[in-house]
Design a protein around this nucleic acid. Structure first.
Lengths: 206, 206
DNA sequence: GTATCCATACCTACTAGTAGGTAGATTCGG
DNA sequence: CCGAATCTACCTACTAGTAGGTATGGATAC
């Protein structure tokens, strides 16, 4: 049961612990996957014991779900922020691609991408969140593509949904292929090619 | 006398064991990842003990490397077969995409795709093989794209290497996104969109 | 004010189970 | 007989998770 955090001043070392756990374990999940880190890893890095970790997150499944939901929430917020900026469709898609680029630049993979690879081994709640993340992204992309198409700023082939799927998969895959070599340039090039294939105004060559 | 490998003359039940191990463990690696299966899993499914497994593949790293190398070898052979068919660039790329579709239709992920997600946790030899697999695919794709471009059957934007990278990442990512829902149709649609973006003869937009 | 009470956060020390891996005996085909 | 293939029986290290205790910092009762 979540207490109403009203501890502003004194003990700063204890109040921040759940967030520190989410940060550290989240980074490990984005670099090594759910099956690639242990409670012992997290505890050692933070400087508490495994038992204390269990005090804040009763099981690994609970911790994993918390990290994943926080990530998905942050991504949805980023999409809302893009929408709120009042840009045209091509620029919104470019910002979308930049969201992924930012993750890779931090030496991380998209959390939902790396977890999709481990999908069959994950607890059911995490599986559901991953599917919802992809579905949300597809919907958002399809909407932006549709707006660009009807507004004349994009001229893609295929349905909005098909193009959205290609874009989502294309960016996730570009991260995955760039990951072993930490090759930011290859990701950026792929992202640019994908966006250019939508027939936006800045990319009509010849 | 070829001391390298003895021939499967008669007793098929014992000589077949290493291959059965590679088949079973390979399927597990393509569905659950390297960290998602154990020697116990493989032994139980085959019906031998863990100790017998170690007799054939001394360590899990050795087994993993053997599976990965066999997979990469098979993929290279498939690329050679595509080349040997004497097709034009667009049809060769379509066959390439179908290689990936076939894997997904077997309810598996591209081995190198799933392992790329686990990259940081893998033994160094496997890491090297994964990088080589991607590099091989990029080279092959870039060559085919270059041939299509100079032959006039493809009109892609961007350099051959950039387009190759987009295609490779796009297909790997399309598999990854389709994986949780086992959604063959979404993979097929993404693959078609990706190929269409190369400006092949059947896809020239006005 | 101070004594009690309670919740939070942390600890030490443990459990059962599983991971990969090994030693040595046995089985069995050629 | 030889040797590959397999077994039983084990090991050590590590996994997630638990039991039970300690220190601290408010609240509240007297």
């Amino acid at each position: 049961m979540p207490a109403v955090r009203k501890k502003p001043a004194t003990s700063k070392r204890s109040t921040g612990t759940p967030d520190r756990i989410l940060d550290v374990a989240g980074r490990l999940m984005q670099t090594r996957g759910y099956n690639g880190f242990s409670y012992a890893d997290v505890a050692a890095e933070i400087g508490i014991t495994k038992a204390s970790l269990h005090h804040h997150f009763s099981t690994k499944a609970v911790l994993g779900a918390a990290i994943l939901e926080r990530y998905a929430r942050g991504f949805r917020a980023a999409l809302a922020a893009i929408d709120a900026a009042g840009l045209g469709a091509p620029l919104r898609l470019e910002r979308y691609a930049r969201l992924h680029a930012k993750v890779l630049r931090q030496d991380r993979l998209c959390l939902c991408g790396i977890l999709a690879a481990e999908y069959l081994t994950l607890p059911a709640p995490m599986q559901r969140t991953i599917r919802a993340f992809f579905a949300d992204n597809e919907r958002w992309l399809a909407r932006v593509i549709g707006e660009g198409r009807s507004g004349g700023s994009l001229h893609p082939q295929g349905s909005d949904e098909q193009v959205a799927l290609m874009l989502l998969g294309g960016l996730e895959g570009a991260m995955l292929v760039a990951w072993p070599l930490k090759d930011m340039a290859s990701f950026a090039a792929s992202a640019r090619r994908l966006l250019a294939s939508l027939g936006g105004p800045a990319n009509r060559r010849g």
